[in-house]
Design a protein around this nucleic acid. Sequence first.
DNA 1: CTGTTAGCGCATTCAA
DNA 2: TTGAATGCGCTAACAG
Lengths: 381, 381
Amino acid sequence: MIKCAKCRQIDFVQKSGIVRGKQRYFCKACDYHFTLPEAVENRKNKPRHQVTIIDIANELGISKSTVSRALRGHTDIHEGTRKMILDLAQQLEYQPNPLANALLKSRTNIVGILVPEFRHYFFPTVIMGAQEILSKAGYNVMICQSDESYDTEVANVKALMNSRVDGLLVSVTTQTNNVDHFRTVLRKEVPLVFFNRVCPELDTPQVIVDDYAGAFQAVEHLVQQGYRRIAHLAGPVSLLVSRLRMKGYLDALQKHGLPVDNELIIHYDLTEEKARIYANYLLSLPQPPDAIFAINDPTAIEIMLVAKSRGVKIPQELGIVGFSNDPISAIIEPPLTTVEQPVWEMGRQAARILLEQMENPRIETYQLPTRLVVRGSSVNC
Amino acid sequence: MIKCAKCRQIDFVQKSGIVRGKQRYFCKACDYHFTLPEAVENRKNKPRHQVTIIDIANELGISKSTVSRALRGHTDIHEGTRKMILDLAQQLEYQPNPLANALLKSRTNIVGILVPEFRHYFFPTVIMGAQEILSKAGYNVMICQSDESYDTEVANVKALMNSRVDGLLVSVTTQTNNVDHFRTVLRKEVPLVFFNRVCPELDTPQVIVDDYAGAFQAVEHLVQQGYRRIAHLAGPVSLLVSRLRMKGYLDALQKHGLPVDNELIIHYDLTEEKARIYANYLLSLPQPPDAIFAINDPTAIEIMLVAKSRGVKIPQELGIVGFSNDPISAIIEPPLTTVEQPVWEMGRQAARILLEQMENPRIETYQLPTRLVVRGSSVNC
DNA sequence: CTGTTAGCGCATTCAA
DNA sequence: TTGAATGCGCTAACAG
């Protein structure tokens, strides 16, 4: 089945020895010597050769289009032919090559997920939720983590775009102030959904929880427990989630007539070391707080460890509330009061919206509920 | 630049109206009406059109081969031409389409990582280590988690193979007894490296830690602390890691002349619920153990919680040692004695070996060291 | 109902 | 030094 490279006839071609490792051919019709393109040659003796529709077509003596149609389940096919094809495909363990399809359709069936870290409970869980929905819908997932570095985030977005992902699920870093890299994504019309750490300045869907209400309840709870000098170890101002929780904190204080002391409000970059430093700072103030509302559970736990190491009694001398309901918070001693958010569901929801976005784009912010879980770290009895 | 679909001439073709949304063309030479393939038509007016070498070639009035060569950095190119091409490419923000390349070379530059779960510290950390190495080497990573389900694992392997990953990093589920799906991978000559939960029966590299020594030290430590009736809440027999840690446990008992009591050895499936059930079971034996060596930290922590809930004092009435040095173990009360393993490094190592495997396959088992970290949960003072 | 043809974007081979 | 032709595997349009 080898055509002459010159006269295109097939009946006169024969092998004519091997030169520098390459099989050479000779056409008796036009007296022409030639070698086959490497790919074709490889095709013949590669052990890991994947079965293609051409193999099936050749085997059956029909055209590859017919095979394609049968495999794709088109209706206008002779029943016998279809059966032949399907049987052989099964027997040969035929697997369509998604690369070819991707090239043809410019669709990879891959969704990129970009998160700042996955050391803690939160992001891995969101990812699992997203994966649940996405894999049901036939998508594979490519996960990147930016390690809270803006540069890495930019590089990751570039890499994912370069891999031609069909959509992007993103939670930004604490350092992300410039969002041009996401503008590029939108310009190329690649569906993009933010979750948790969102970019409200971009016209694309966002999935968040009711951070304001959660924070408000948390602080109100502290007030009701009798705490009066409540500090807030907050996230960086760049993140909407920080600002919303901050607002909940402030409004709760205000509602209950408590003064806002700026000394007790600290924005930080969510790293462990800084959490420890600021916790120590707060506890060594001349007038230390009697309670701290932390932006999230890892922060709350760092505070707790610092407090313990300083001999500060929880909850008697210091009430602590976190955010997220990380499983650790139930385990630690004393168990941590925290604001539960539907983490798994957030992943599912973000994925659903991304899928929807691929069909008919709509820009909306989706908000999931939060719920206060009261535990020992804040019950001042 | 449109050729007639019949006579292949280009000079006589003109548009002839739009029918059902499709542009139709008309050849004045051969009097033939036709439409262009969808792809070509799309190409003309797609907003998200990516720049290709053809665009560059057309713009410059040269052939795409030349452009390709210039971009690929071949030497046999006129310096002026090269510069022209490179400049225009930069200006147009040309990005080579990896899909085309993948199709051509049968290489995707994607590595699949398959883990049983990522709820806990261990697997996410390994993944981060692997990613560090792989992305440096120009690979993207596709992560799947099987949720400890054999069927999901098989499906995931299939999906990853179907995506034509260039290599696979795997840790199997507790249920994986049949490894035919991995045999398929090897048969197709896709590099495969196991880590942590490995498949020694397969001829492919494995990365593990010195589980035996770690377990031995852990149990010996318990003996030295004066514990005499040491139980072992072990992993499923199907996992090599369970068997090795079990052996370490048994040998340590034997070395110190302690009897092996089968009642005190329990294999389980690593689920939280079962951990709790068996912990309760052990503690309610007529002759309960005075110490428990747990297969891993999550298990140890479940045991600790159960013990606390039953009012059993740790470490006075019950010594506990885990395995992995999960960050939680330092935080929990009392802090957990555990066997540290270089988790991050395990990911890096597995990735390195996978890369090496792509060059020159070699079958070896790589073992990383472990180290006992003594904390409060086992110091019987 | 089926075969032919074209093209997705690229690298490569051969001919000039 | 360059261009034309080929094929990676597949689908879709079109012509019988």
